[in-house]
Write a protein that binds this DNA or RNA. Sequence first.
DNA 1: GTTTTTGTACTGACCAGTCAGTTTAGAAGT
DNA 2: ACTTCTAAACTGACTGGTCAGTACAAAAAC
Lengths: 197, 197
Amino acid sequence: MTDGRTRRRVDTRQRLFVAAVELIAEQGFSATTVDDIATRAGVAKGTVYYNFESKTVLFEELLRHGIGLLTAEFRAAVAGLPPREALAALVRAELDYIRRYRAFAQLLLSEMWRTNREWQQTLRLLRGEAIEVIAETVRAGVASGDLPADLDVRTASSALFGVGLVVAVDWLVFQPERPIEDVQEALLGIVRRVAQT
Amino acid sequence: MTDGRTRRRVDTRQRLFVAAVELIAEQGFSATTVDDIATRAGVAKGTVYYNFESKTVLFEELLRHGIGLLTAEFRAAVAGLPPREALAALVRAELDYIRRYRAFAQLLLSEMWRTNREWQQTLRLLRGEAIEVIAETVRAGVASGDLPADLDVRTASSALFGVGLVVAVDWLVFQPERPIEDVQEALLGIVRRVAQT
DNA sequence: GTTTTTGTACTGACCAGTCAGTTTAGAAGT
DNA sequence: ACTTCTAAACTGACTGGTCAGTACAAAAAC
């Protein structure tokens, strides 16, 4: 299963992902060329097309990979926790993720609310999966009375997701000198206050 | 002053702005072609270049125009109000603006946190001007004791700006059927809670 | 000996920007 | 009024460059 060949291939794909995510975060999907990606990954252009069907497919698989990871971390973070604590854990997990994969977060923030792009459908679906984890937690909190009963679950969940993203990326881009732990504290404070019944 | 010629020209530029803002909001700057913009505005491609130096300059002037308008509305909204009320007025003004210029708001959200683009400097500057209005209000609130003394003015201001943007655009894109007044209420509620000393 | 990668060259579509020519608004002349 | 003139506004075919994707023989990795 993980013989040398597959490992090498996985590694090449990984390097292409890393190169693509950085370039697309900086410049956007359209402004980033396949040659750029190949060069930054230290690979020939043909290798990109040996490993991915097209530029668009590369990007879609990148989105799937990145958001899949985030969703998994969300699930791991909330496992077994009561609603209120789970909510705080989600915020922590999101910021932790953004700190580790800042370029991907920046990319997400820029491409998330686009319309009329080929990969828009894919992104919508993946976004839904990530937010569903948040929604489950919020729903459980409302059901158990830990969160206000009049809370709109869908809205609250996507707002929570978006707010974490925008505040963290804003911090990274415009005040990179300050430690992200501060954002985490600030956001947790906000969420705690807002979540009060 | 407003003879037929200038009126015609102002009208053409306006139509180009409208066309450009819609297309760039949907697809992004790079994916939007000058031909697209010209066609949607109902003019020939040459007209774009008669009215603007380049595609980039068109975009920069568009940003200046759009954010200038927002800054002006911020200033008008807070004029003469005490800090707490001014803060609520700012949220209302921002959402009001986003409702009226949804495409521009979407565009801002997508292009705001990009790095390595020619117009990035311009956008940074304009963002600073808009946020400065918020910062003045927050600063006054902290000084008068209406807002918590330990509040980081710069962070709080940009967070407030970004949060309004992301929550509103998210709503517009993913739940367009619901009235924006609900977002306004939700956001005001959050801001009120968070602003409690 | 099979899979993966390289390097280079190529194609065809697309696109930012140009420019010689046309239309239009309105001033100036009669 | 009504023609003529002029500069501003606009047009759209064209150019030169860029880029996604292809082709493929040779090499390297396993």
